[in-house]
Design a protein around this nucleic acid. Structure first.
Lengths: 364, 364
DNA sequence: CTGAAAGCGCTAACAA
DNA sequence: TTGTTAGCGCTTTCAG
């Protein structure tokens, strides 16, 4: 019994030891250690001009010895500023979005900012909560790409009220006064379709995305304009809305073959639906690109490896991220925020085999 | 001229307006507004039991009216705790890593934690800086997957000293006392190779990754053991180290065809090098899977779409992320940290066409 | 060149 | 049930 007790005792004390909050060394610890004041230490560490080199050296040595690490949180609280940028993004494990974050990081980090990343999972409620979280964390600025569910900007109000700079990227709400960084989807789509036309395809269908998302709307408009500018008729029945998944692409292409056999090319607003169509066509032994041309949009990594490789439009995620971050950081230290302004990143047509009717050009 | 001046005047005043630092409303503002003390407000907002429902209601209404947003930073400083988890990860725009982050997020966020994400870009120096940053930000815990350059854990010391819980995931340093969450690469590779053997392939080469990375080493060992357990000779010359890119896969396979024509299958430690090999074989008109079987590892998204579709091993990034986050959060509120402990996530073999010698099984 | 003192926004003993 | 007071760790006037 006694033994049990002492064992219990031991574990209690062990527990106590672990629980013992290892308080991090503070400026005061250093001050005490050197018999100076906290202010001197603070100034020395910040290389304040009116501190003697001698004490600077002493302080810095002591800091290293005591393994001192600045508490940025406290410093920021005092200074009334922050060093983190909040990112709200629909999904984090999509190549395009991951690239954007990567781009943001390459400019934010050297500028001394940390990223706190909040995925909305395409959900408006989550997005609203994310905004709250970021404000509560007093981020220096917010970068946001809205969720598929988001149609209005009411939940941005508290951001504006709080005076936190905000810039939108990729998926944006047009009518509000913020800087927006996005692809020129119209031109991207236009070039894409123009390319199909130049290759000699004449009856081009379009798999469009949901038209309430501005990006898809612009792609549709680019498609239409390219047809009109090249003396091809625009036929509304050749536009299939909401076809962005592989499955829908597959099904839709199957339908088209029955109802509109004249069709000889597809411009899909998403690589996934282009892929679905490609799978169906191959199953039906319809030769791509000889008899049927296909182009997608987004430049998903797989496009390079399918057969035939997929012509598509690259959206330059990294460039978008960099531009957005640069703009935000500028706004953080600037007077002027919330201007209507658009920074447009031109997309790039990536020509691969799926659209090269002219076989001579086929690449490996 | 006068007009110009007044326009300029207007813009100046506008500018002034924007520059005006919009101080966020604080607890004191609410207190003043209601003629109570800050503590009452604080307690009311935190639903403290000994505050009357009446004042709670009043306070909350006032808070909403004044658009009050809690300053978590200040609250945390006072409470001596934080609500953010730091993630150090080699790359953010790799599907596998993005999935891990996604997994982390699904458990960290509901638990009230924000993520601050620091990519090391496979660079030890950056990784070291990231650690400093996270400590300075007084994160509640750190999740880390080491860079390709990282071989020792010296830079972890300050984390241990500061008492911040840390768990490693995926790429880990074995000999240090932390929880580690990772794939069972040995078993993953073993099953992968076993599958090739079961399909009737007899001369299997291995494209290995750099062996100083433990994950690749384990995959190599799984390969070897699978051969030995199935009465196939293990031949060191059939292991090609450091072949993980598409280009190297292509070149290496080309060499093999010249030097070791007996080979009839490949187990690649990366999908990319498997793809490179596949491209070369197709160019040489060697039928896959009839004459040559191929398996990869990682389950990159493209594997599903290449022809033939690529058999590979899925690493369950989301599961890894979830497990790591759960463990870290447990440690944050627990007494015991830094135990040697391994949480092993079993990978899953994804059988596709590239390894199905038995054509009957071929799937679309 | 350095010290004293105040305060960033919040919470939590201790009082009342 | 509410108020008073102190302090988290830091920076920064204002004095000396």
């Amino acid at each position: 019994m006694k033994i049990m007790q002492s064992i219990a005792q031991f574990f209690l004390s062990l527990n106590k030891f672990y629980k013992m909050k290892k308080r991090q060394t503070t400026i005061h610890d250093i001050a005490k250690y050197l018999n100076v004041t906290a202010s001197t230490v603070s100034r020395a560490l910040n290389d304040h001009p009116r501190i003697s080199e001698a004490t600077k050296k002493r302080v810095k040595q002591a800091a290293k010895k005591l393994d001192y690490k600045l508490n940025i949180i406290a410093a920021n609280l005092r200074k009334g500023k922050g060093n983190t940028i909040g990112i709200i993004i629909p999904l984090i494990n999509r190549f395009f979005f991951a690239n954007i974050i990567s781009g943001i990081e390459t400019v934010a980090n050297p500028a001394g900012y940390n990223l706190i990343i909040c995925p909305s999972n395409e959900n408006l409620e989550k997005e609203t909560n994310n905004i709250k979280t970021l404000i509560s964390n007093r981020v220096s600025g917010i970068l946001i790409s809205i969720s598929a569910e988001t149609k209005t900007a009411e939940h941005f109000e508290s951001v504006f009220k709080s005076g936190i700079p905000l810039v939108q990227f990729d998926r944006t709400i047009e009518h509000i006064a913020t800087t927006k960084v996005f692809n020129d989807d119209f031109t991207g789509a236009y070039q894409n379709v123009k390319h199909l036309i130049d290759q000699g395809y004449k009856h081009i269908v379009h798999f469009a995305g949901p038209q309430y998302i501005i990006n898809y709307q612009k792609r549709f408009e680019g498609y239409r304009q390219a047809l009109l500018d090249n003396n091809l008729p625009f036929r509304p029945e050749r536009v299939y809305e909401g076809v962005i998944s592989r499955e829908r692409g597959y099904e839709t292409m199957s339908t088209i073959l029955n109802t509109d056999p004249e069709i000889d090319a597809l411009f899909a607003a998403s690589d996934m639906s282009a892929l679905g169509a490609m799978i169906l066509l191959k199953k039906r032994k319809i030769q791509i690109p000889a008899l049927f041309g296909i182009t997608g949009y987004v430049n998903e990594p797989f496009g390079e490896f399918v057969e035939p490789s997929l012509t598509t439009t690259e959206q330059k995620g990294i460039a978008i991220g960099k531009a957005a971050a640069k703009e935000l950081i500028a706004q953080i230290s600037a007077a002027e925020k919330y201007r209507f302004r658009s920074i447009i990143i031109p997309p790039e047509l990536i020509v691969r085999n799926s659209s090269l009717k002219n076989h001579a050009e086929l690449k490996l």
